[in-house]
Design a binder for these strands. Structure first.
Lengths: 124, 124
DNA sequence: CAGAATCCATAAAGATACTG
DNA sequence: CAGTATCTTTATGGATTCTG
């Protein structure tokens, strides 16, 4: 009953990781924070297209999950910055190969997506 | 109309990768196919909890994206198997560190998720 | 500047039943 | 066995407005 089927029962390591980085923006946030700790505003500019709502929401979850540390400097005007914890940093390193894969195969991926867009257009 | 961004314009390599593996089951599918090419039924058993609809849907997208190759042996009863293409295999290798990260930190992740479940219960 | 609160549209996923 | 088809639900994300 105790550790039978808990909500946090992962089928494998990958499954566990996926639940932590679930969300459209989390991997990108971790990736940008790995390059440099950032203030809220800078982060928002770096993660292009994200809304305040989503950025805050995902930052809070990352913080709750122990990947990100939030520091409020209690100044006026507000100054808050975000940085990775050691756990977050280790995750960002695991993410690096995905960045590399995307960079190496971007042409091919873009081509395939363009084709998809084409027939999506035709069927509309 | 602000700045016209094409559908396949990625902000960085990670962004490109994320679009390819977007979907609850895709990374797991690639992961399992990397270990051994599989028939449809085996794959379904391996990816625990997936429905036919989702499995087929995501397999089709992976196939359209050039990561998976589907082979229909045209037999009765039907026999179809799925395997990674070279591109898919390279992606599976990039995924490996995420598996490792999840395995190494599963305890911690599970603990955090359990806490979340606790206060989600309380607010209900 | 760094959010919070609210409302809304859509996309993603699940359940179920059926088929060659 | 390897899927389809349809319906319903839920999760996700976006737009807007407001605030200390």
């Amino acid at each position: 009953m105790t550790d039978n089927i808990s909500p946090a029962a992962f089928t494998c390591g990958l499954d566990a990781t996926l639940r932590v980085i679930a969300g459209k923006w989390k991997p990108l946030i971790v990736y940008f924070l790995a390059q440099s700790p950032n203030r809220y505003g800078e982060l928002k500019r770096a993660v292009r297209g994200v809304s305040d709502k989503m950025l805050i929401q995902q930052l809070k979850e990352l913080e709750a999950d122990g990947l990100v540390r939030r520091t409020d400097h209690k100044e006026v005007p507000p100054r808050v910055d975000y940085a990775l914890t050691p756990l977050g940093r280790s995750l960002s390193e695991a993410l690096a190969p995905l960045c590399a894969w995307g960079s190496e195969n971007m042409e091919e991926v873009a081509r395939v997506f363009a084709e998809r867009a084409t027939w999506a257009e035709k069927s509309a």
